[in-house]
């Protein structure tokens, strides 16, 4: 790193607790979910189902708070997708990073996500996670389908979609965890998500369009 570093407060307390709570829930859901699917034996089917249901419903409810937070704070604007600088970010991760180049889109309080993150997190928060919660909720409420007039749905279909989403989430997890090591130090991003403070190069200016208030 060439430049002088400065600390900026990037993630609020709610954001961080939500992140780790969600991480914890998703981890539990993955572990118990794959057990319920019969991939291995750990807690036993009965306990696995019970934990999965409890955590799943908790996730659903707490996700509603997250959505509320997103819209009341205006943070949703951080998720607006863009193609600008997308290619340079991609180029950075497949090439520049090996040459020790600077990240083309540095972080700022009002521009937390680079274009690649924006598209990833938007698909995650708006598509994949809701899809997983939706199919999970349907799976959970299987016995009411008849009364709700959706008795024609085969459980296998919902289970299939739920499983497919689970694999997608697991894949996200693998890459996401790795990506946290790509900061200016191995644990810089991780530390930021714990303390809220991220070290960034103070010389770099970010452009107005990248800010959420733009």
């Amino acid at each position: 790193m060439n430049g002088k570093m400065k600390n900026i407060y990037l993630y609020t307390r709610y954001e961080r607790s939500w992140h780790w709570l969600q991480m914890f829930m998703i981890l539990l859901l993955l572990i118990t979910g794959f057990e319920v699917h019969g991939a291995y034996k750990l807690l036993g089917f009965e306990t696995a189902v019970s934990v999965h249901n409890t955590v799943g419903i908790t996730w659903l409810i707490s996700f509603a708070f997250f959505v509320f937070w997103l819209f009341t704070t205006g943070e949703w604007k951080q998720y607006i997708p863009t193609t600008r600088k997308m290619l340079s970010v991609v180029r950075y991760y497949v090439y520049g990073i090996f040459r020790g180049e600077e990240h083309p889109v540095p972080k700022r309080k009002d521009a937390k996500h680079n274009p690649l993150q924006r598209i990833t997190y938007l698909s995650l928060a708006a598509l994949l996670l809701p899809a997983q919660m939706g199919t999970g909720f349907l799976y959970w409420s299987y016995n009411h389908w008849e009364a709700w007039g959706i008795g024609f749905l085969p459980l296998g279909l919902i289970a299939f979609l739920h499983m497919a989403c689970a694999f997608a989430i697991l894949q996200f997890l693998v890459i996401h965890v790795y990506m946290t090591t790509t900061g200016h130090t191995l644990f810089a991003h991780l530390k930021a998500m714990i303390t809220g403070w991220e070290e960034v190069d103070e010389r770099v200016r970010i452009e107005d369009w990248e800010k959420k208030s733009s």
Partner: peptide
């Protein structure tokens, strides 16, 4: 003729799923 959690699986989905996970892990 019906899906039963824990007993039934989607062979292709699981194979593709785990392959993608493995490739992602190798990739990173």
């Amino acid at each position: 003729g019906f899906y039963m959690p824990g007993r039934d699986r989607f062979t292709l989905l699981c194979q593709v799923g785990w392959l993608i996970i493995a490739l992602s892990a190798v990739g990173v």
